Lab assay of single mutants.
Amino acid sequence: GATAVSEWTEYKTADGKTYYYNNRTLESTWEKPQELK
């Protein structure tokens, strides 16, 4: 079936920290989303 993983994109900030952005909800988070675990 369809999965929600594709909504999240992993980015890195200029200082090398990783964060996650959800293209559907426009939410961003420092925590790894449940969908990616």
Results as ranks from 00 to 15, higher is better:
22 N>M: 00
33 P>A: 02
22 N>S: 03
16 G>H: 02
36 L>H: 09
32 K>F: 05
29 T>F: 07
16 G>Q: 03
28 S>Q: 13
27 E>P: 00
2 A>Y: 11
28 S>L: 15
13 T>E: 03
28 S>E: 09
26 L>R: 13
11 Y>C: 15
31 E>S: 06
34 Q>T: 11
14 A>L: 10
27 E>V: 08
20 Y>W: 15
4 A>H: 13
5 V>Y: 14
7 E>G: 06
35 E>M: 05
22 N>G: 00
27 E>T: 06
33 P>F: 03
22 N>K: 01
13 T>F: 04
36 L>S: 07
32 K>E: 07
23 N>V: 10
10 E>W: 05
10 E>P: 04
26 L>M: 14
22 N>R: 01
12 K>P: 02
29 T>V: 13
9 T>Y: 09
33 P>L: 02
5 V>D: 12
28 S>M: 15
24 R>Q: 09
15 D>L: 04
6 S>N: 11
18 T>D: 03
3 T>P: 12
34 Q>K: 09
10 E>D: 02
2 A>T: 13
6 S>R: 08
27 E>L: 06
22 N>L: 01
28 S>D: 03
21 Y>K: 07
36 L>E: 06
26 L>H: 15
10 E>I: 11
6 S>W: 10
15 D>V: 03
13 T>N: 09
35 E>K: 04
32 K>Y: 05
29 T>H: 05
2 A>F: 12
6 S>P: 11
32 K>N: 04
8 W>K: 00
7 E>N: 06
28 S>A: 12
2 A>E: 13
22 N>I: 01
15 D>I: 03
25 T>N: 02
8 W>A: 00
36 L>G: 06
13 T>Q: 04
1 G>N: 14
24 R>I: 15
10 E>V: 12
18 T>W: 04
7 E>S: 05
12 K>F: 08
23 N>E: 09
5 V>H: 11
26 L>Q: 15
21 Y>F: 15
5 V>E: 12
29 T>A: 06
8 W>M: 00
4 A>E: 12
33 P>S: 01
35 E>S: 10
16 G>I: 00
25 T>S: 03
6 S>Q: 10
12 K>N: 04
12 K>E: 05
17 K>P: 01
20 Y>S: 00
20 Y>R: 01
7 E>P: 06
14 A>M: 08
16 G>V: 00
4 A>T: 14
10 E>R: 04
10 E>G: 02
29 T>D: 02
27 E>G: 03
33 P>E: 02
23 N>I: 11
3 T>S: 12
8 W>R: 00
33 P>T: 02
3 T>W: 09
23 N>P: 05
26 L>N: 15
31 E>M: 06
33 P>D: 02
37 K>Y: 14
28 S>F: 15
5 V>G: 12
21 Y>P: 00
9 T>R: 12
21 Y>D: 01
5 V>K: 09
10 E>F: 04
26 L>I: 02
12 K>R: 14
33 P>R: 02
36 L>T: 06
33 P>M: 02
3 T>V: 11
13 T>K: 03
29 T>M: 07
1 G>M: 14
8 W>I: 01
24 R>Y: 11
5 V>A: 14
34 Q>W: 12
24 R>N: 09
3 T>Y: 05
15 D>M: 04
6 S>G: 11
26 L>A: 12
32 K>A: 07
29 T>K: 07
35 E>Q: 08
29 T>P: 01
6 S>D: 11
20 Y>V: 00
13 T>L: 05
17 K>I: 08
24 R>A: 08
14 A>S: 11
13 T>M: 06
5 V>M: 12
34 Q>A: 15
37 K>R: 13
6 S>E: 10
35 E>N: 08
1 G>K: 07
14 A>T: 10
31 E>Q: 08
31 E>H: 08
3 T>E: 13
33 P>V: 02
5 V>T: 12
37 K>N: 14
28 S>K: 15
26 L>K: 15
1 G>Q: 14
31 E>P: 02
23 N>F: 09
37 K>P: 08
20 Y>Q: 00
10 E>N: 02
10 E>K: 04
29 T>G: 03
6 S>I: 08
14 A>D: 09
1 G>L: 14
14 A>H: 10
17 K>R: 15
29 T>S: 10
32 K>H: 04
20 Y>M: 01
31 E>G: 04
28 S>V: 15
27 E>D: 04
5 V>W: 14
12 K>W: 05
36 L>A: 06
2 A>N: 13
35 E>G: 09
4 A>S: 14
12 K>T: 11
21 Y>M: 07
17 K>W: 05
3 T>R: 05
16 G>E: 02
34 Q>F: 11
18 T>K: 06
22 N>Y: 01
1 G>A: 14
35 E>I: 06
8 W>S: 00
23 N>L: 08
15 D>K: 05
25 T>I: 02
3 T>A: 13
3 T>D: 14
20 Y>D: 00
25 T>G: 01
9 T>W: 07
6 S>F: 09
17 K>L: 10
13 T>P: 01
37 K>A: 15
27 E>R: 04
15 D>T: 08
27 E>A: 04
8 W>V: 01
29 T>E: 03
32 K>Q: 08
23 N>Q: 10
23 N>G: 05
26 L>Y: 13
29 T>L: 06
33 P>H: 02
37 K>G: 15
33 P>G: 02
1 G>I: 14
25 T>R: 01
10 E>Q: 08
22 N>P: 00
22 N>F: 01
37 K>M: 15
15 D>W: 06
25 T>A: 01
27 E>H: 04
15 D>S: 09
24 R>F: 12
4 A>I: 14
7 E>V: 07
24 R>G: 04
7 E>I: 06
31 E>W: 05
17 K>T: 08
23 N>D: 05
27 E>W: 03
14 A>Y: 04
6 S>C: 15
7 E>A: 06
32 K>P: 07
18 T>P: 05
16 G>S: 02
15 D>R: 04
27 E>K: 07
29 T>C: 07
16 G>P: 00
23 N>K: 11
1 G>S: 13
35 E>D: 10
36 L>Y: 12
26 L>G: 15
22 N>D: 01
2 A>R: 09
12 K>M: 10
2 A>L: 13
3 T>G: 13
23 N>Y: 09
20 Y>L: 01
15 D>A: 07
24 R>E: 06
28 S>T: 15
17 K>F: 08
24 R>C: 14
5 V>F: 14
26 L>W: 07
5 V>S: 13
3 T>Q: 13
35 E>T: 05
8 W>D: 00
18 T>V: 11
22 N>H: 02
6 S>Y: 09
2 A>I: 13
29 T>W: 04
6 S>K: 08
17 K>M: 07
32 K>M: 12
34 Q>V: 12
2 A>S: 13
20 Y>P: 00
3 T>C: 15
36 L>D: 07
32 K>G: 03
12 K>A: 05
17 K>N: 06
34 Q>P: 15
12 K>G: 03
5 V>L: 14
20 Y>F: 06
31 E>A: 06
9 T>Q: 11
4 A>C: 14
1 G>R: 07
16 G>Y: 01
34 Q>H: 11
7 E>Y: 06
